[in-house]
Write a protein that binds this DNA or RNA. Structure first.
Length: 438
RNA sequence: GGCCCCAUCGUCUAAUGGUUAGGACAGCGCUCUUUCAAGGCGUAAAUCCGGGUUCGAUUCCCGGUGGGGCCGCCA
């Protein structure tokens, strides 16, 4: 039995998008779980549509996700002689003919093409529907129809896993294989990824590239996990979180869904949150640092954070963090004295006098604690003791928290206070008292 | 228009002749609580329609309908 070989063969006409990543992933998984080979081939035969930087982006993105290819990148533009040779062979055999400066393949219109798709089963298409098609363009470059097939043959690709938009062209590929007298590979046509309007995702209409998702602060683990689930799910399990390694073991090409999938951003958000929650803060810190170095907005506020402080903030914000792009705002809160409407300081129906008294008490408590004891545990202990003097804890704690954060919602006051430190906490409480006096 | 593919909660999906049609996200409610999250508990929500086949259809067949794809010297 020969080794299984798959390939991912994008055209460098734009940055890699989610659909492409999924195709690459499925090809990778299928090859790896069968101890086979995964090849990257760049189909750059359309000179007009080739985009600068696209190839680099595709390669970099695959590597980011750990989808290492065993061979490649192999560029079709560097293999032109071979396509011309094959074209000539077909002309010699009478299977192709010149049409101006181009060459067309002569489609045999009899009968039907029947093939067994790994995902969809038997598919039958009448050959008479196909026209003679161009295999070599007038600029001397081959078309996709010829080039991909020649390469798949030369590279001994055993399984072609690609989008379903190629199904209707299968008679062309079957006829070409017959003309060359080549063995036809196995095919698996993947369902399309749809946008919210149920239309095929296209990179043309400003569709988000994988790079954009990374840039928005989604974790690569979450993205790949999410994309894997768009069209596949284990049949006897409710498991939803998979590492690449687990996917390699559990993925089944035959179980891939036949219908197109619309991707739901809120599910991606959830997966990302799950990964953040499970990540040790030390790791999270490293990842945030890596991300922050690429994102200028992290510099807002201009304060150098020491590791210990950032670690505390991350620990605190983990449960409510969806993507890293939210971090600058969060850091900003700890960084810069907040501006807010004094109304914010009001808990339920407190009067200004009551709020003022509450803040004065907070002020005094903080002053009474020395730097060495300025921890959230100790703060909580002392504050809760004083809170007993109020008819509702909130009367002490809400104004305090609002003064510290300047926000409607935030983590608890003790945690914030510990991170801010005694001096800054005091400053913010005093500021609130002033603000209240108007 | 022709051909091809597809059809389970709003979304991603499980169940391949026998289940109260399962899970997850989102929604909603309750709980916890100093706010927002997180957590816990709970709730609503689907087999596109019509015919067959069968003792029995989400599942098999046929026909509709709906959605998508292809019909390029794009891939």
């Amino acid at each position: 039995m020969h080794e299984i070989k798959t390939r991912f063969a994008p055209s460098p006409t734009g940055f890699l998008h989610l659909g492409g990543l999924r195709t690459a992933l499925y090809n990778y998984l299928f090859a790896k779980q069968n101890s086979g080979e995964f090849i990257l081939r760049i189909e750059d035969t359309d000179r007009a549509r080739t985009v600068d930087g696209a190839e680099e982006n595709i390669i970099e993105t695959l590597k980011t996700f750990g989808l290492y290819f065993d061979k490649g990148p192999i560029r079709q533009s560097e293999n032109l002689d071979r396509y011309r040779e094959c074209t000539q062979e077909l002309i010699n055999k009478g299977a192709a003919y010149k049409d101006g400066d181009a060459v067309r393949f002569k489609m045999i219109k009899d009968g039907a093409t029947v093939f067994e798709d790994i995902i969809r089963g038997e598919i039958k298409i009448e050959n008479k529907l196909q026209e003679d098609f161009v295999i070599l363009k007038s600029d001397g470059y081959p078309t996709y129809n010829l080039a991909h097939l020649v390469d798949d043959h030369d590279m001994a690709i055993t399984h072609v896993i690609r989008g379903e938009e190629f199904i209707s062209s299968m008679p062309k590929y079957a006829a070409l294989h017959r003309a060359f007298d080549w063995e036809i590979p196995r095919y698996a046509h993947l369902p399309l990824l749809l946008d919210k309007n149920r239309a095929k995702l296209s990179k043309r209409e400003g569709e988000m590239s994988v790079y954009d998702f990374l840039h928005k602060g989604y974790l690569k683990e979450a993205i790949i996990n999410f994309v894997a689930l768009l069209g596949w799910h284990p049949s006897k399990s409710d498991k939803e979180l998979f590492s690449l390694e687990e996917l390699t073991n559990e993925f089944r090409l035959e179980h891939v869904q036949k219908s197109g999938a619309i991707f739901d951003m809120t599910k991606l958000d959830w997966i990302n949150r799950e990964y953040i929650k499970r990540m040790p803060v030390e790791t999270l810190f490293e990842r945030v640092k890596e991300y922050g170095e690429k994102d200028q907005s992290f510099k807002i506020g201009g304060v150098e954070f020491n590791k210990e402080r950032v670690l505390k903030i991350l620990e605190l914000e983990k449960p409510r963090l969806t993507t890293f792009s939210e971090l600058p705002k969060i850091f900003f809160m700890f960084n810069v004295e907040p501006k807010y409407n004094p109304e914010l300081l009001k808990w339920k129906k407190m009067t200004n006098a009551e709020i003022n008294k509450s803040l004065e008490i907070s002020n005094n408590i903080i002053e009474s604690i020395d730097d060495a004891n300025f921890t959230k545990e100790y703060l909580e202990k002392i504050f809760l003791e004083h809170a007993k003097e109020f008819k509702d804890r909130g009367e002490l704690l809400w104004p305090f928290r609002a003064a510290l954060s300047g926000k409607e919602s935030s983590p608890g006051p003790f945690e914030i206070s510990e991170i801010l430190g005694k001096e800054e906490s005091l400053r913010r409480v005093k500021k609130a008292i002033e603000l209240l006096r108007g």
